[in-house]
Design a binder for these strands. Structure first.
Lengths: 217, 217
DNA sequence: TTTACAATAGCACTTTTGTGGTAGAAACCC
DNA sequence: GGGTTTCTACCACAAAAGTGCTATTGTAAA
């Protein structure tokens, strides 16, 4: 490797692999090391092993099997996303695991590969990931979008007057009546009145329920 | 059209176009009508015109320019998503409008086209949309995923015991102390105690603030 | 010009919350 | 075994929230 320039070495993209099937894991490791500009800095059969070493190695990318024995790939992604967020996670999955893929993305992955993907396409996907993309199939993308779209607004909150919405907004920040009164330069009793009206309009009976309706969830 | 079989007619995918540039709009209309299996059921220069006719026509797909004069394409998507949710919206956009595209997706679109896209690829994208996909570029997909991923959990909430988390969960639903007590089969005073401890650990002083910390925001 | 509604405010009262103290039983860790 | 933490529970009190009245003002709609 050092035969080539050291400058080249420094731009190497470091990839780790977490996969329980020995053959597939070794295949990935070889593929990565054989590809110009990439090096495999770690290969693990379980999430537990990976968690021990990844924090020190900090690879750029981690290829993670979605269904690892023991601690699952999804749990591993969650751990990495929460604790070593510089690592970009890509899931490796068999067919028909849409639900799992979705959960993995939610947990912190940015893409996934089918295990049937060709070596060239695997490295394309990794490259895409590093370049700020999110390699995934179109139907998974649709699911992701659907879940991120703002939920349909409840008509009920639209019945609120501007002032009531303002009060509700402050209410949702956890302010007391007297604090809201101070902020809006009105009396506590008026704030109470607004809240009372808000609760009636939203058909709820306390601030928490009102806030929940307001935030839709 | 009816020259061909009527069965064929019934499976036609209906596409509407909302685009202010006459040439581009007409180009899309022709492209759609020339493509087997598709028909254009409406072409509008503004969102306002579209809103008048779309509820009755209910096309399968709407191609919408993202920056329409007057009511924007994003507002139109929002309207459609809220009111005629059977229509799949795809945005048409020039370059460098990532932010707008992102907002359009959030408002209810499921994909987007660059205006430089070739006729064949446009119809591919429409097909993808109808088949449950979400045609978009990889970097927009990444943005979408990033915003949908569960935010990093606050360390503070991790200090809570299992029971405290359970209480906080119920608290966040708007339940009263006595309701929580009933659900957990413990006394009201114990619930109060748990809440008191929760507030201390989270450094807050009422349920709303605790819930806000819990939900991270 | 009525009518309707929004915003304001006060008062009285009940219920719910939040704070403080104490304390026993069970589980877990050195 | 001894120490620590967690869950449980009771009491008392202060603070805040919620409910039910009434009432004035300004503004917008019919």
């Amino acid at each position: 490797m050092l035969k080539y320039s050291t400058a080249y070495f420094y731009t190497m993209i470091k990839v780790a692999v977490v996969e329980d099937l020995d053959d597939y894991r070794n295949g990935l490791v070889n593929l990565i090391n054989w590809t110009d500009g990439y090096e495999c800095t770690g290969a693990y059969a379980t999430a537990e092993e990976a968690i021990k070493e990844l924090p020190a190695l900090k690879p750029d990318v981690a290829l993670i099997d979605i269904s690892l024995p023991g601690k699952s790939g999804i749990e591993l992604v969650e751990y990495i996303h929460q604790n070593i967020s510089s690592i970009l996670c890509m899931m490796c999955t068999a067919y028909d695991e849409d639900e799992k893929v979705f959960k993995a993305l939610q947990a912190g992955a940015y893409g996934y590969l089918l295990k049937t993907t060709s070596p060239a396409d695997i490295m394309n996907a990794v490259q895409q990931l590093v370049n700020g993309g999110a390699p995934m199939s179109s139907d998974v993308a649709r699911k992701v979008i659907a879940s991120f779209q703002s939920p349909k607004k409840n008509n009920e909150t639209e019945n609120l007057t501007a002032r009531e919405k303002q009060v509700l907004e402050l209410l949702s920040k956890g302010l007391l009546y007297k604090e809201i009164a101070f902020q809006l330069s009105i009396s506590i009793d008026t704030v109470k009145r607004h809240c009372f009206n808000i609760y009636e309009k939203l058909h709820v009976s306390n601030r928490t329920e009102a806030i929940n309706k307001y935030h839709q969830h």
